[in-house]
């Protein structure tokens, strides 16, 4: 019983990590209908920049939380600039292009960012200093650390904040207008380019936060970390219904739970024939089954197809 509870906690934490990254995917997709494949790399850059700032300040005698805050701010700023740059250079000129063209530039941007990061931060893995208190707590039989608790709350906070932004502010209304019908939005006096640029910058800021939280949890960063995380988060976003904020959260948590329960119980369920090496098969199988019955994800409202 303890094992089951622990697996659920594990899945929740892992799922929150996915959800944080998935929110960035979904936000851009919701407005532009475009998969920003470079999002995972922005997460990586966020983590790497934070690492550099922390390494710079760690011996300065400042309190650890302040250092973390400074690194968070700097990494958010860098990532926002990066997000703006990516949109401006790789996506904006292609808004009227065939649907797959921005996909290829996105792949190009990922490769470029990865290799720049490799040149800049080196090929090796880096330790991410633990600045946050990270004690373990018992939660009726299951163990959870403070950073993990923080991750769950940050993910929820991000989603709540985005929902508020989308539905309670002028900017949010403009964003929804652009998503609904860009040409009508222009006629209503919405600055489309501005709104899209802000969307990207917001998404990238979320990526920076996610990058730092992920690194703080696992304590290890590498220039390659973005790609696999991005892929998982993208899967989560689709599972929940890409373009939908709540969907990203639900999809992320669900994927996390599927993975951890799959890894934990797949062996017992299949009588020892399959083991935890089929964890991803299990996850994709659930995804495919969900999509067969709900072709646009769990909470997706519309069939996402750009003409």
């Amino acid at each position: 019983m303890d094992t089951l509870l622990q697996q659920i906690v594990n899945g929740f934490v892992q799922g929150s990590v996915y959800a944080m990254v998935a929110l960035g995917y979904t936000m851009v997709y919701g407005i532009l209908g475009l998969i920003n494949f470079a999002h995972g790399e922005v997460v990586m850059v966020g983590a790497m920049v934070a690492l550099s700032v922390i390494q710079l300040l760690i011996d300065s005698g400042l309190p650890p939380l302040l250092i973390l805050l400074i690194s968070l701010i700097i990494s958010i700023v860098v990532c926002m600039a990066l997000g703006y740059g990516i949109e401006r250079i790789a996506y904006r000129p292609l808004r009227n292009a065939p649907r797959l063209a921005p996909l290829i530039t996105a792949i190009g941007v990922s490769i470029v960012l990865q290799n720049l990061a490799m040149m800049f931060w080196g090929r090796e893995y880096h330790a991410f200093p633990s600045l946050l208190p990270n004690n373990s707590h018992m939660l009726s039989g299951a163990i959870i650390t403070e950073v993990q608790i923080l991750i769950v709350f940050v993910a929820l906070g991000m989603m709540g904040g985005l929902l508020l932004l989308m539905h309670r502010t002028r900017l949010g209304r403009a964003m929804r207008a652009v998503a609904e019908n860009p040409s009508a939005a222009v006629l209503m006096g919405v600055n489309i380019n501005g709104v899209i640029a802000i969307t990207f910058m917001l998404g990238s800021a979320l990526a920076a936060v996610a990058g730092i939280m992920v690194s703080a949890n696992y304590g290890i960063v590498h220039y390659y970390m973005g790609s696999i995380l991005g892929l998982k988060a993208f899967t989560a976003a689709v599972l929940g219904g890409i373009g939908n904020m709540r969907g990203a959260m639900v999809g992320g948590l669900l994927l996390g739970l599927i993975e951890s329960l799959g890894a934990g119980y797949i062996g017992d369920l299949s009588g020892g024939f399959l083991g935890s090496h089929y964890q991803d098969v299990f996850a994709f199988f659930v995804l495919i089954s969900v999509l067969i019955f709900r072709p646009s994800g769990l909470l997706g409202e519309r069939v996402a197809e750009r003409a």
């Binding site: 997709y29 998969i35 649907r99 993208f234 899967t235 689709v238 890409i242 995804l287 495919i288 999509l291 067969i292 072709p295 646009s296 994800g297 069939v303 996402a304 197809e305 750009r306």
Partner: peptide, 11 residues
């Protein structure tokens, strides 16, 4: 068969 675009991509 029922899936379109990006959903098909992920499957």
């Amino acid at each position: 068969l029922r899936l379109r675009g990006d959903y098909l991509a992920i499957v």
